[in-house]
Design a protein around this nucleic acid. Structure first.
Lengths: 223, 223
DNA sequence: ATAACATTCAAACGTTCGTTTTAACCGGAC
DNA sequence: GTCCGGTTAAAACGAACGTTTGAATGTTAT
């Protein structure tokens, strides 16, 4: 029969993915050995190669498991928004964009927090393969949000908007990923980070203001 | 004599540091082998251990070479600013903070651009040692800028300011480090990134607006 | 010239890496 | 029971890792 049993469906796979998420975050990809990984997961050394094929394929699987749902959620949030009004406000769009990430970060029981830390690193990931993979997974949501913001801010030059989206993206990425820099800047209680609602408010206010920053008459020097 | 010769002063060291900067950025620390590194630098395999002691010590040296001068420049910019007026504007403070980083990024002939890409990665660096090292090197400048911003924005709650500094820091870090995400968001000519002046204007406008975002009456749920 | 020193070099060290192999195990189908 | 696909187990593979060694080489002071 080709009917997959409904037993502990791929428990080993899940254990490996969980351990990989945590260890990749702590030590990076190259810094995490298969022996350490499989030991932490409580599985045999050969299990990774059996279930995923190779270490590189495992890396990809780790990202796919979380990133695909997150970007699906991002698009769903935007759909919901645009169903109510044709041209949502920049602030509402920002909120729709950052919410799925923050939700993952606030996820206490699951290892979502591990993943957001890992995720933040990927935007500057050295591995070309990983960067391309991430790019592919983000592209659809990005196009949607770019179009939505162009509609919300019709007066803004396109290249300026691209840069402000870039800044916005960076702020979120850093917020999701950063570990102890906040405590470095000031004595900040780390439990604040997990108050998802408060963080969403702060981040939205900051990003909305930045996105709506007054447009100076930019002095371009002749080429 | 203990007088060091003035000849090609530590040429091998410099060649190693340059190669390390580029390769660490491309492949990460663990992903860069000593054999590849020394080959690229055109030095013997044993040269790194001879001149720096170990690979880890080389990593530290790579950061020290660039980070120390950059944070010295940051403090100097702030000194210069506060010499003119006691309480500079938030925008001026922001500009003073981001300028040294952007200057390094725009540095075409030197490998400064390589370093800024590498630097952006460090804020989410897995290695505890590296993170602590970076933290130590940033701390003095950070305290100065925090104090300056508190003076410039006396009405802002301290914890809100800390978070906005955090966002600001993240935006700059991401801007310095990001590689192809901008092109992912939109067809953005990569040569724009190197127009340091234009980028400074854009970044300053965005950050100043975010830092000055209106303070909503935050609804805190009772503990 | 020669002694003392700093640097470079080729070779090898032991360890750990990701992966492969081969046998054992296990639950259902017949 | 017997067979069989899916999974786990222990052991070994060759390759690559960071580091060390000891001799060779260049450089400077006497």
């Amino acid at each position: 029969m080709n009917l997959r049993a409904v037993k502990p469906q791929h428990e080993t796979r899940t254990r490996i993915l969980d351990a990989a998420e945590e260890l990749f975050m702590q030590h990076g990809f190259e810094g995490t050995s298969m022996r350490l990984l499989t030991t932490k997961a409580g599985v045999n050394l050969a299990a990774v190669n059996y279930h995923f094929g190779s270490k590189d394929a495992l890396v990809e699987a780790v990202f796919r498991r979380r990133l695909d749902p997150m970007n699906v959620a991002r698009i769903a949030e935007l759909d919901k928004l645009e169903a109510v009004e044709a041209a949502p406000s920049p602030e509402a769009i920002i909120r729709a964009f950052i919410t799925p990430g923050l939700r993952l970060m606030a996820d206490g029981k699951d290892g979502g927090r591990n993943f957001t830390r890992l995720l933040g690193r990927t935007y500057t990931e050295p591995h070309k393969q990983v960067r391309q993979l991430i790019g592919q997974m983000y592209a659809p949501a990005m196009q949607r949000y770019k179009a939505a913001l162009e509609r919300a801010l019709p007066q803004m030059p396109r290249d300026e908007l691209v840069w402000r989206m870039h800044f916005m993206f960076g702020t979120l990425a850093y917020t999701l990923a950063a570990t102890d820099t906040v405590q470095l800047i000031a004595g900040c209680k780390p439990e604040d980070r997990y108050d998802a609602h408060l963080l969403e408010e702060r981040l939205t206010a900051f990003l909305a203001a930045g996105l709506n920053a007054p447009l100076k008459t930019v002095i371009r020097k002749a080429a």
